[in-house]
């Protein structure tokens, strides 16, 4: 969906998305680097599960939520990529504690 203006002077920065190695450039936001790498959907709509993509790229739409280095609910459009960053998709329901079987309420 997105591609780069070629600029050989920009320092490459590698990070991982869902275990996959992605190469971005220094100064990229996580969202821009993922879009440039062809990853169009970072999360699904909570109710229907339909795929969503960043809409505003400035921190108000919350469609770019990801988990970064174990911390959830991060807005990918506000955070610059760092070498070795581990980025994962945002989960509609956070994985904390021990899930209980059966009736939850």
């Amino acid at each position: 969906m997105f591609q780069r203006l070629t600029d050989p002077s920009r320092k490459p920065v590698s990070f991982r998305f869902e275990g996959q190695e992605i190469e971005g450039a220094e100064g990229d936001t996580v969202a821009a680097a993922l879009l440039a790498a062809g990853i169009t959907s970072l999360k699904d709509a909570p109710a229907s599960g339909s795929p969503r993509s960043p809409y505003c790229m400035m921190g108000v739409c919350f469609e770019c939520l990801v988990e970064i280095d174990g911390a959830g609910h991060q807005q990918a459009c506000l955070i610059p990529i760092r070498e070795g960053m581990d980025v994962r998709r945002h989960l509609a329901a956070q994985n904390i504690g021990e899930a209980v079987a059966g009736d939850t309420q």
């Binding site: 994985n95 904390i96 504690g97």
Partner: peptide
């Protein structure tokens, strides 16, 4: 809070998980 997976088998008086999680 944000949604999380089911955590409780009973209802806790001051910590109450909704159907949405």
């Amino acid at each position: 809070t944000e949604r999380t997976r089911p955590l409780f088998n009973h209802v806790l008086g001051q910590v109450r998980q909704t159907d949405e999680g």
